[in-house]
């Protein structure tokens, strides 16, 4: 299991479009991925409703946990997505 904590780069946080890009990538990775805010519950990162319902804002720190083959590669790709500002 690989884990990393990153800060959200998108100016409006992880809502519609960035959330879509992220969950698509998580679902497409083939690995089991969860995302959580500090001290909050972890949700399935392939669930757009789960991700949106965390109410993740710009600058928030979130923790990704990846289980499966290539966990490190998947973690790297997903972290990069979260760091990027998709709103500009």
């Amino acid at each position: 299991m690989a884990e990393r904590t990153v800060r959200i780069g998108s100016a409006h946080g992880l809502h519609a479009r960035p959330a879509k890009l992220f969950t698509q990538a998580a679902a497409g990775s083939g690995a089991s991925v969860t995302i959580s805010k500090a001290g909050g519950k972890a949700v399935n990162a392939a669930s757009i409703l789960g991700v949106i319902s965390l109410g993740i804002n710009h600058g928030d720190e979130v923790t990704l946990a990846v289980d499966g083959d290539n966990a490190d590669v998947v973690l790297e790709e997903l972290s990069e997505l979260l760091l990027t500002d998709h709103d500009e």
Binding site: A16, R17, A19, K20, Q24, S47, I48, L49
Partner: peptide
């Protein structure tokens, strides 16, 4: 365009595993 992103996000909501 930008509408496609939103509609695709909605399509994902319809098949969301949590839902």
């Amino acid at each position: 365009g930008s509408a496609q992103d939103v509609l695709e996000a909605q399509a994902m909501m319809a098949e969301d595993p949590t839902l």
